[in-house]
Write a protein that binds this DNA or RNA. Structure first.
Lengths: 340, 340
DNA sequence: AGAAGCGATGTAATCGATTTCAACGGGGAC
DNA sequence: GTCCCCGTTGAAATCGATTACATCGCTTCT
């Protein structure tokens, strides 16, 4: 491995000049710069990050803390983050908040340790108190958020819910249920508020019995389907707080011999990749995941560069993706009759 | 941020002693050790990784190079890697081979740069030549592999294919097709060999026309379905080289008004999470993804620790997961009759 | 008694890049 | 002609942890 010293010797200049050529080329004369760059080219020199980071008092990486690394939802977001970080010379460290025993203390450890120059937090369940660490690097919340003391990147959650409910309404539905995320989760709370607000503006009844509990997972969607089937007062359409739950819900409904959208219309949230390939294809609210990652990374880099903490909230638009899991209930009944 | 010096001063010893207490406690006397640890406790000291890495001539992280970070298949594997690396003080860097313009040169850059102490490669399409870099850190191939000059962790791909074909055979199928992965991909080649071998041992005909081209993606599965439908000589069962393709295939089949497994039995490979929630639920070959990640990480750590390159290949068993996308073709026809 | 051995600890060099400060040479202003 | 300034460059300090080597007491062996 060639070092700065080697380049300096080869180019007949001092290490200071080499360093300047690489990081602040405006300061060195044209001819010298050429000589240095030639030496760099010849040796295939690459900076030693450990040395640079030590000298510059930084860690050279940022951490993404996700609630569950095994959840495919995050992979695309990570790709977005990575694409912004890499050109800036930062590495992306990923860690799982659920992996260890005590998420809060692990978070605190990351903040204190100088392990990273910044942190992107995807888990809204951590305690705000854990963030209160002296000299902690900047933190950006993404997707989920904690209070309003942290800069964050999120999507139009309530608006997405309203889009979903209005779409079901436009299709002719008047009884619309909601399949929730984990109790207390900010995304879930906000989407549920959007759901209730939309019902209100549309003059539709809301009914506590139409709210089914879930936790965003496939399995919880399937379990909710069983409760839906057993419910004599069940709504004719379900807005699910995540696509995974919507998929689980539809799967279980159909395994029970019922049909989507004939017997129940379903709409999800996220637009995960399989949504377009389910039977029926899933109507949903699209979240631009790569964009979320990019924005969060950019926001964090800006905070690192300026050493300032401006608590801004970036809201990313969502949109309805119409597919075939929603139908007019009247038509559906007719179809039911002909089919039998 | 407290440094080693601070601890040394506080405990009334030298930095050498503090360092030893932390990394090799056996070398220091009981009493001194206690004093040092008390000082560490009091200040909340954490090592500066940049300094340690510089001194120890290592990067402190390993890179996972995946062909496509946005592919959910990898998230669980990354979780497995991460769980092994974190306790050992290594960070996990993730990078996407497809993100930039020239994957090979990016790979070479990672190897040369001292950016990482090791590399886990999930992309079998890179050229072996790109790996030939002086002083490159150890590399482990996982899932896919390149030639046999690299240690690797993989699953029983051919055996998985045989399990799949035999299962279809046992269900009564005699015409069994194969939906391929990308041409030239090692996983695809191996699974196809397993498929052909199984046909041969079962005394079944093989037919070039029954081999449909795909590339592991959902969309390619859907496109293959269109070709299958248009094919007068189509096989009665399809073994798909990936679950994503199987999902895409089933979805498109059913959107065309046909039914799985009534009109065609389908079996996938991977056991991705949604497989159990598709309509119908997807019979498939399970790959233990977390385990793959853990094994690859352990193998790499061993190589880093011993500085040796022993070219071992670890093969991880797969198993058939029976669900409901496979049916006896005779029964299926009967069901068809009753249903209409 | 003297040498040798051993456990515990300190001194100081070292990793490689960045950056402050000083120095140098030449051009323009007075 | 002298002075000053500016562009360019180099010498050397610095970041924080690790570790080879030296040192110092003591015990133990001959």
């Amino acid at each position: 491995m060639a070092t700065l010293q080697d380049i300096a010797r080869l180019a007949g200049v001092s290490t200071a000049t080499v360093s300047r050529t690489l990081s602040n080329p405006g300061l060195v004369a044209e001819a010298t710069r050429a000589a240095v760059l030639a030496a760099v080219e010849q040796t295939g020199y690459q900076v030693n990050h450990a040395a640079r980071n030590l000298r510059m008092q930084r860690a050279g990486s940022i951490i993404a803390l996700v609630p569950n690394l095994a959840n495919p939802f995050f992979s695309q977001i990570l790709a977005g983050i990575s694409s912004v970080l890499t050109p800036e010379g930062f590495g992306l460290l990923v860690a799982d908040t659920q992996a260890g025993p005590d998420p809060d203390s692990r978070l605190r450890q990351y903040l204190r340790g100088g392990v990273a120059d910044g942190l992107i937090l995807f888990d809204g369940n951590l305690s705000l108190a854990a963030l209160d660490v002296p000299d902690s690097p900047p933190v950006v919340a993404a997707c989920e958020w904690l209070g309003d003391t942290l800069p964050s990147v999120r999507v139009e959650n309530a608006h997405g819910a309203e889009l979903a409910v209005r779409h079901l309404f436009d299709a002719g539905h008047r009884t619309i249920g909601y399949l929730t995320g984990p109790k207390g989760n900010v995304l879930n709370v906000t989407r549920q508020e959007g759901y209730l607000a939309a019902l209100a503006t549309l003059g539709l009844p809301s009914n506590q019995a139409w709210i089914y509990e879930g936790d965003f997972s496939l399995d919880s969607g399937a379990m909710a389907a069983a409760r839906w089937i057993a419910d004599p007062m069940r709504p004719g359409a379900m807005f699910c707080a995540s696509d995974e739950m919507a998929c689980g819900f539809m799967g279980a409904i159909q395994r029970a011999g019922l049909h989507v959208p004939r017997d129940v219309s379903v709409i999800g949230f996220d637009n995960i990749e399989v949504a377009a390939h389910m039977t029926p294809t899933l109507t949903t609210i699209r979240q631009p995941r790569t964009l979320i990652g990019e924005r969060a990374a950019n926001m964090l880099l800006k905070m690192i560069a300026t050493k300032s903490i401006n608590i801004e909230t970036e809201i990313i638009p969502v949109e309805l993706v119409e597919r075939s899991s929603v139908a007019n209930p009247a038509h559906a009944s007719r179809a039911l009759v002909t089919q039998n």
